[in-house]
């Protein structure tokens, strides 16, 4: 077990309106089995002992599935490995390192405090069409609707998105296309999603644009940083769905 001393440069911003800045902190005795967030817990305990305001950051399940954690570490969302921040462990760093920690940066993700941002734009996009309109109780027997394993697996791959926003944070254009396309693709592939297919593509893309996200230039940074490895193929599928819907839907 190795212990290390680190310099942390952390974005501190008291609230949404305040101007923020990078602040420097020294931290010592960090064990390489700690998770990155546990390292921040240690920092926060230290800060509180010194009567300083602890660093605010979003986190919850700490097992890589809730999508709460959202730190840009040394310039990369969720840090040097393709995983969530909570699953990043200190063995990825070495003694004496300086680590820069910043919030997701996007106009559509305003900072709430320190490293915490407001990602409700994602929810609003989902409200605009990320569902199959089926009331409780009206479903047929599940096995009356066979779905080929390949399609089911592909739909599942798209559905693994945890909504963390690393795609937006990684994209030089702060585009949300990977997130939006994952949902559109999942439902476009499945028979359940067919009835509302065109409307869904049109309204979700419209909401995405209204939120102020950038546009995709196909650099692939989103997928390369996505902790769930959502594929760029989803974006192509969304483009296809959207163009198809725009050309053929009844909505004027």
């Amino acid at each position: 077990m190795n212990t290390m001393n680190l310099t942390l440069k952390i974005w501190r911003q008291p609230n949404a309106k305040a101007k923020g800045e990078m602040k420097s902190y020294k931290i010592s005795g960090i064990n390489d089995h700690m998770s990155f967030l546990e390292m921040l817990d240690v920092l926060n305990e230290d800060l509180q002992k010194k009567n300083e305001d602890p660093v605010v950051f979003d986190h919850d399940c700490r097992e890589g599935i809730c999508g709460s954690c959202s730190l840009v570490i040394n310039g990369r969302p969720h840090g040097p490995q393709q995983t969530t921040t909570c699953q990043l462990h200190m063995r990825s760093f070495k003694d004496g390192d300086t680590i820069y920690i910043e919030p997701w940066r996007a106009k559509a993700f305003p900072v709430i405090k320190d490293l915490m941002v407001d990602r409700s734009a994602f929810d609003r996009i989902q409200h605009s069409g990320g569902y199959v309109s089926v009331n409780t109780g009206s479903a047929q027997d599940a096995n009356n609707l066979p779905i080929g394993k390949e399609i089911a697996d592909e739909a599942f791959n798209s559905a693994t998105c945890i909504g963390c926003g690393a795609c937006v944070a990684a994209c030089k254009n702060a585009s949300a296309m990977l997130f939006v396309s994952a949902k559109i693709s999942q439902l476009a592939m499945l028979p359940q999603g067919q009835a509302e297919r065109k409307k869904r593509a049109e309204s979700m893309v419209a909401q995405m644009d209204a939120e102020g996200f950038g546009a995709c230039t196909n650099t692939g940074a989103c997928s390369a940083e996505c902790p769930k490895e959502i594929s760029m193929a989803n974006i192509a599928m969304m483009n296809r769905e959207y163009l198809g819907a725009k050309l053929t839907s009844e909505a004027v």
């Binding site: 199959v132 089926v134 109780g137 027997d141 599940a142 779905i147 499945l190």
Partner: peptide, 13 residues
């Protein structure tokens, strides 16, 4: 199970 499948939940198949 019926309800979830109708919503598009991608269960293993």
């Amino acid at each position: 199970i019926d309800q979830c499948v109708a919503q598009g939940v991608p269960f293993a198949r």
